[in-house]
């Protein structure tokens, strides 16, 4: 079954990973800008990273037969320094104009501080002023519930927000219902230890239905699995779910969400 991994950090993966992902059916990936595991020393580091995401990683993916799209933003961990973040945000329009960028992401909260929220609001403003898709990172572990509520409250206060053009990512059992009830796309990340497992993601699809749910590997440089989406497919099959239901979650839904971007020109195979 062909699938789309709507959130994966290709920059942290090997060429062998990409080749195997393609063999397992991956046809499209979305790569949000994020934290590299250490804070960058200046805005020029961000510029190089954004070039990597829009020039080099698409080429590596194309060599494997995978169509690559990027998201542009500054992650929550580096958003605490508001002045520095402001310089990065000022750089974003240049990259949002590139032909393979889907929107603003991943943006969000980490420790839910006042400064993080100030930077986040500037990113949301940028995205809405340009009619961009928005991809939100929700915090890890004990901060997730609070951070998710803060993001949802912020979005609900802005009448320009179209929920169909927003994905709230890294949802788990205590946040997925909140996100779906507001009409947003709910991303579920499949991780070995934190976030959700393929089994728990299958549970959430069974409980809430396959509409508006995306599953992703969010595979990066930490404990993660670039083949997590195929594992989800296998888990759904083991449970006896129809192929159409599985395909909706791993292919039709991300295709529908991404297709709202003017830059998404992937042509599905007949």
């Amino acid at each position: 079954m062909n699938y789309i991994d709507p959130h994966i950090h290709i920059a942290a993966r090997t060429t062998d990973d990409l080749a195997l992902m393609a063999k397992m059916g991956c046809v499209v990936v979305g790569e949000p800008a994020f934290w590299m595991g250490y804070d960058r020393s200046g805005t020029s580091s961000f510029r190089d990273y954004f070039r990597q995401l829009t020039e080099w990683e698409p080429k590596r993916c194309a060599d494997a037969g995978i169509k690559h799209y990027a998201w542009m933003g500054i992650n929550a961990k580096e958003a605490e320094d508001v002045a520095f973040a402001k310089e990065v945000v000022a750089m974003l329009p240049e990259f949002l104009d590139r032909h393979n960028v889907l929107g603003v992401g991943e943006i969000g909260l980490h420790k839910c501080t006042v400064n993080e929220m100030a930077t986040l609001k500037s990113l949301v403003e940028l995205g809405l002023s340009r009619s961009e898709l928005l991809l939100f990172h929700t915090p890890h572990l004990e901060d997730k519930y609070k951070g998710t509520r803060m993001i949802l409250d912020m979005l609900s206060e802005d009448k320009r927000v179209d929920s169909a053009r927003v994905c709230i990512d890294h949802c788990e059992e205590h946040t997925v219902r909140l996100v779906l009830n507001e009409g947003y796309w709910a991303g579920i990340t499949l991780y070995p230890t934190t976030k959700a497992t393929p089994s728990r993601a299958a549970d959430m699809v069974e409980i809430y239905g396959p509409d508006h749910i995306l599953v992703n590997s969010s595979a990066d440089w930490g404990p993660s699995n670039p083949f997590a989406v195929p594992e989800f497919i296998a888990e759904m099959r083991r449970r006896g779910h129809a192929e159409a239901v599985i395909r909706k979650v791993v292919y039709d839904n991300p295709l529908k969400f991404f297709s709202q971007s003017k830059n998404f020109n992937f042509q599905p195979a007949e």
Partner: peptide, 12 residues
């Protein structure tokens, strides 16, 4: 994190 993960898996 491992214990937390196993507890959530068990609950699920």
């Amino acid at each position: 994190l491992t214990v937390r993960s196993k507890l959530i898996d068990l609950a699920a």
